[in-house]
Every structure is written in C-alpha cells, then in structure tokens.
Computed example of a mutant assay.
Amino acid sequence: MTVSTERAPTGAPTDRDPIPVTTVQTRTARRENRVPRWIFKLISPIALVVLWQALSSTGVLSDDTLASPATVAGTAVEMWDEGRLQEAIAASLQRVGAGLVIGVGVAIVLATLSGLFRRGEDLIDAPMQMLRTVPVIGLIPLLIIWFGIGEQPKIVLIALAVIFPLYMNIYGGIRNVDAGLVEAAKTLGLGWFAQVRHIILPAAMPNALVGLRYSLGSAWLALVFGETINATAGIGYEMNMAREFFQTDVIVVCLVLYALLGLVADFIVRLLERTLLAWRPAFSGA
C-alpha cells in the first residue's frame, strides 16, 4: 500500500500553525490616535492672526492702516460693554431674517411651479433668467424711489439677493431628477402627488440646500449694502460711522461679526443637511 504525501506550499498554514487573521484593531487604533479635524481647521486662522499681530507689533502695519488683533479685541469688548454690539447684531438679524423669509418663500413657490409644470416654466423661467443677470446692488436707487429710505428697501434688497440662487438650485434639482425613478413610481401605481412627495422633492432636496447656503451668503452681502441706506442701527451702520472717523478697529470688529454670523448660518444649514439627507450617503473626503 502506497501512501502519498504532499508538502504544503511554503508559507501556507498547517495544523500546528494558527491561521493568520487580519483584524482592524490596528487601523482603528490609528484612527483614534489621529488629531481631531477641528484642530486642523483652526491652524490657518490662528496662523493669520499671529502673522497679523507680528506685522502690527513690528510697525509694518500701522493702526491707521489696520488695527492690530489686540486692539480689535479690546474694541470689541468695549463695544459689548456699551451694548453697541448687541444692538447692531439684533438690528441686522431682524433685517436678514425678514429678507430670508420673503426670499425663500418666493423662490420655493416660483421654482416649484417652474420645475413641475411645463407651462409654469414657460411663464416663469424666462423672466427669472433675465432678472438674475441684473446686479441686485444696482437696484438700490430704484428701491429707494419705490420704498423710501426706511427698512423696506433693505429687506427687499436682501430678499432679491436670496431669491435667484435658491430658485436656480431648486429648479435645477427638480429638473435633474432621474426619469427612471419617476417611471418606476408610475409603474408601482403612485399618483402624481405621491410622485412629487416621495420621489421628486426628496431627490431635489440636496440642490435646494446648496442653494440655501448660497442664498445665506448673498443675504449677508446684500445686508452690507442695504445698511448703507440711511441706517440708524446695525452692523453696517457701525461700519459707516467708523469710516467717517477712520476707526479701523471698529471696521474690523464689524467685518468679523459678519463673518461669524455667516459661519453660524452655514453651520445651521449643514445640520439641516445631516438631518434631511440622512437617507442619502455621500462622499465625505478621503
């Protein structure tokens, strides 16, 4: 009787050797040891502030040209203690809030009608495409003539700045919905309203939120110009008064306020994206 023996390939596991098992413990440990992302996000702003302070301390930047970060911080504390910052922020937020409510409402209605209905597109889209090329800031003289120099022209200016980017993104989102999904919904017996609710609007939501982020940026930009129209309160009013007296520290404080409020608004929209688009996994970077 012949017994044949075969040698296992070199490096192959045998009965005496444990089978190597690849685990993710090392990879997980590496991820846990990584530096948090928020630290990297702070590196660039902190480096710019340090460079700015260094240039001011060495005399490269004079206070007449640009106040140092230390001076700006001191001015911000003084304005806060006097109540000027709170009053300015409250006035500006009221204007932006009113303009956003009007602009978002109008944009949603027009984009929905234009995106869902061909007749709506024929009646709405062409005028919107023409008007969006008109500089909103160029409308300030007309707004003053139509609404005076009170709060109305400021709010209307912000609303106009919000309408067009939001309209374009919602309209594009609706029209870019996969036709195959709509046909599948029809095959399953979904009615028109059910198709809009369960297929079209959810698919257009990512574009709508992108448009909202653009609109918020446009709203703050329009506010800067709007508060030059005979404003008696607000961040823009403080900037204009500081310009008259060459107070660069106050101007920088106002600019930082605009930036911080814009970041807060963008953060809120990002939270909405995570909530409303939780069903839609997306690439988050390598």
Rank of each mutant, 00 (worst) to 15 (best):
residue 154 K to L: 12
residue 157 L to V: 04
residue 170 I to V: 15
residue 159 A to M: 09
residue 139 L to Y: 07
residue 155 I to D: 12
residue 153 P to M: 07
residue 160 L to P: 04
residue 139 L to G: 14
residue 141 P to V: 12
residue 159 A to D: 06
residue 136 V to R: 09
residue 166 L to D: 00
residue 142 L to E: 08
residue 172 G to P: 01
residue 185 A to S: 10
residue 179 A to F: 08
residue 187 T to P: 02
residue 150 G to F: 02
residue 168 M to K: 07
residue 188 L to H: 11
residue 184 A to M: 10
residue 138 G to C: 04
residue 168 M to C: 03
residue 188 L to D: 06
residue 142 L to A: 14
residue 136 V to I: 15
residue 152 Q to V: 15
residue 140 I to H: 08
residue 141 P to Y: 14
residue 187 T to A: 15
residue 154 K to G: 13
residue 161 A to G: 15
residue 165 P to R: 05
residue 137 I to F: 11
residue 181 L to K: 03
residue 173 G to F: 07
residue 147 F to M: 10
residue 157 L to S: 11
residue 159 A to W: 07
residue 134 V to R: 11
residue 179 A to E: 13
residue 169 N to K: 09
residue 149 I to E: 01
residue 187 T to E: 05
residue 151 E to P: 02
residue 144 I to P: 07
residue 183 E to L: 09
residue 173 G to N: 09
residue 164 F to L: 05
residue 172 G to N: 11
residue 139 L to F: 08
residue 186 K to G: 06
residue 175 R to C: 01
residue 176 N to P: 01
residue 139 L to Q: 10
residue 163 I to M: 08
residue 137 I to V: 15
residue 145 I to V: 06
residue 169 N to H: 12
residue 155 I to C: 13
residue 142 L to T: 11
residue 184 A to N: 07
residue 185 A to G: 12
residue 190 L to S: 00
residue 148 G to E: 06
residue 189 G to N: 10
residue 186 K to Q: 09
residue 154 K to M: 13
residue 185 A to H: 01
residue 193 F to I: 04
residue 140 I to M: 05
residue 192 W to V: 10
residue 141 P to I: 14
residue 180 G to R: 07
residue 161 A to L: 12
residue 145 I to M: 05
residue 162 V to P: 08
residue 194 A to K: 02
residue 168 M to D: 05
residue 145 I to K: 11
residue 191 G to K: 00
residue 147 F to H: 08
residue 137 I to Q: 03
residue 138 G to W: 05
residue 150 G to N: 09
residue 148 G to L: 15
residue 183 E to W: 03
residue 168 M to H: 06
residue 166 L to S: 01
residue 181 L to V: 03
residue 180 G to T: 10
residue 179 A to N: 13
residue 188 L to C: 12
residue 158 I to L: 09
residue 168 M to Q: 11
residue 169 N to A: 13
residue 169 N to E: 13
residue 139 L to P: 14
residue 193 F to G: 00
residue 192 W to S: 15
